[in-house]
Computed example of a mutant assay.
Amino acid sequence: MEQQISPQEVLDIMIARDRFSQWLGLEVKEVGPGYCRLEYTVKEDMLNGFERVHGGALFSASDSAFAFACNSHGIITVALDVSITFTRPARAGDRLYVTAQEVHLGNKTGLYDIRTTNEEGALVCLFKGTAYRTSQPVKQEPQAGA
């Protein structure tokens, strides 16, 4: 019988193991079925050579929100395909808000829209993700081979 686990329990399991999201300083403010909202502050070590936030930092924060949203159903889910479009720069000290929303959930795949905005509500980047749902439930103990 499949164990039922809440989105918050899944998030707690993932966050405890996700040292990269911790290093980025991501603060998850809300999680629900197919949904995640987090925020973070752009740090100096996230800047590129033009003193703007590096695209990799934006991608990583979006990818984490994507992971938290798509795994919220309690089934181990992995990225199948992602893309990102950058719309405006951010600088050190800027507070960024990332919202991941499930657009479609099928038996084996899910489609997600992840938007990062700045303090004025302007779009900084748009990340689209397609996720593959394995048949393995999220569990407290580490997954064998995962």
Rank of each mutant, 00 (worst) to 15 (best):
T85W: 08
E119G: 15
L11Y: 09
Q101H: 11
E30G: 05
L47T: 06
V103T: 11
P137G: 13
V138E: 04
Y35K: 00
D81K: 07
A146W: 15
P7I: 08
T116A: 12
E51F: 14
V10T: 05
I13C: 02
N71A: 07
L11Q: 03
S135G: 15
G145S: 11
R37P: 02
K43E: 03
R115L: 10
Y132P: 04
G25Y: 10
L126A: 14
R95F: 03
V28N: 06
G106S: 12
G55T: 07
F86S: 00
S64D: 04
V78I: 13
D18A: 06
D12H: 03
C70Q: 01
I114Q: 04
T41P: 00
S72C: 07
S6M: 08
A131H: 01
Y35F: 09
E30R: 07
L26K: 01
F86I: 05
L47D: 05
C125D: 02
E44K: 14
L105D: 12
T85L: 09
T117K: 09
A92E: 06
L123K: 12
E2W: 13
G106R: 10
T116H: 07
Y112A: 00
A57W: 03
F127D: 03
D94K: 06
D113S: 11
R37W: 00
R95N: 08
I114D: 01
T41A: 10
V10N: 03
S6Y: 12
A57N: 05
V28P: 02
D113G: 05
N107Y: 11
I13H: 02
S6N: 06
N71T: 07
S62C: 14
A57I: 10
V82T: 11
L111P: 04
D94S: 10
H104M: 13
F59M: 11
I13T: 05
N107P: 07
R17H: 07
S6R: 09
Q22R: 14
Q4N: 14
Q143K: 13
E51S: 15
G106Q: 11
K108T: 15
S60A: 15
N118P: 06
K29F: 01
A65M: 07
S72N: 02
I15S: 06
G145V: 11
Q140V: 14
A16K: 08
I5N: 07
F66P: 05
S60Q: 00
L126K: 13
L96V: 07
L111H: 08
G110A: 08
E39S: 06
T130R: 08
Q22W: 09
D94N: 10
V78S: 08
L24S: 05
L80F: 09
Y97F: 15
K128N: 12
V98E: 04
R91C: 10
V124Y: 06
G56L: 08
I5D: 09
S72F: 02
L105I: 13
A90M: 09
I76E: 00
T99Y: 01
R37M: 06
K128M: 10
A144R: 14
D63M: 08
A100Q: 01
W23Q: 12
I75R: 12
C125S: 10
E2Q: 14
K108Y: 12
S62H: 00
D45A: 08
Y35Q: 04
R115T: 10
G93E: 02
N71I: 04
V28M: 07
A122L: 15
V10W: 05
S72Y: 05
A122P: 02
G34P: 03
Y35L: 00
A90F: 04
I76L: 11
A122D: 15
P142T: 12
